[in-house]
């Protein structure tokens, strides 16, 4: 079982996210994280999601997803060079005694403190999933009051144009791979 990062492009219409979520549920796909937002093209949303499973599961996720009428392309980017980032907001207990230590960690991780009160600070961290994980682990010693993470977003490195990439992605299903 391996983790795969996938990108899906879909029409930005009411109910599309519901269609995708319903598909994941009914086909019993194991989705670890999912992030959706606008893409560079008006009317097209872009979803990055991380799924776990064997080769058959990954092929099923892509081909079943592509069958949804509103999904325009799907690409498994696990094996290609990508930049991937996650954003986290972490509210940590930080009183007079521990605030300096927390700030030091924030510095080391090139995160930032975006809100402070007498009892807590809110830290904004951006980085790869594992980097955010490691900061969270360290901060947990001070006491995490609240946390929100966006889930990973990914982009393929280099200057290939997206249309060509999407074409490759579609061709992959046509060959059944």
């Amino acid at each position: 079982m391996k983790k795969h990062t996938m990108i899906a492009w879909m029409e930005d219409k009411p109910g599309v996210l519901n269609r995708v979520a319903s598909l994941f549920r009914r086909r019993n796909f194991n989705i670890e994280s999912l992030a959706v937002g606008h893409s560079e093209k008006a009317g097209i949303s872009r979803m990055t999601f991380v799924a776990e499973g064997n080769a058959r599961d990954m092929s099923q996720i892509q081909t079943q997803l592509y069958k949804l009428i509103n999904v325009t392309a799907v690409q498994d980017v696990t094996a290609v060079p990508t930049v991937d980032r996650e954003l986290a907001l972490i509210k940590v207990k930080a009183s007079n005694g521990s605030r300096a230590e927390v700030m030091q960690l924030v510095d080391i991780y090139r995160a930032s403190i975006i809100d402070v009160d007498m009892e807590t600070v809110i830290i904004q961290a951006v980085g790869s999933e594992s980097r955010v994980d490691s900061l969270v682990e360290l901060l947990s010693h001070f006491g995490i009051v609240e946390m929100v993470r966006t889930g990973k977003v990914a982009m393929v490195r280099g200057s290939h144009d997206r249309a060509a990439k999407q074409k490759t992605a579609v061709a992959a299903y046509k060959n059944g791979q």
């Binding site: 099923q60 081909t63 079943q64 592509y66 299903y173 059944g176």
Partner: peptide, 16 residues
């Protein structure tokens, strides 16, 4: 339908 390729049975030659 490409989603039928290998859905149930391991196949040698898929033709969509």
């Amino acid at each position: 339908d490409p989603s039928e390729m290998g859905k149930n049975i391991t196949i040698n030659t898929p033709i969509v």
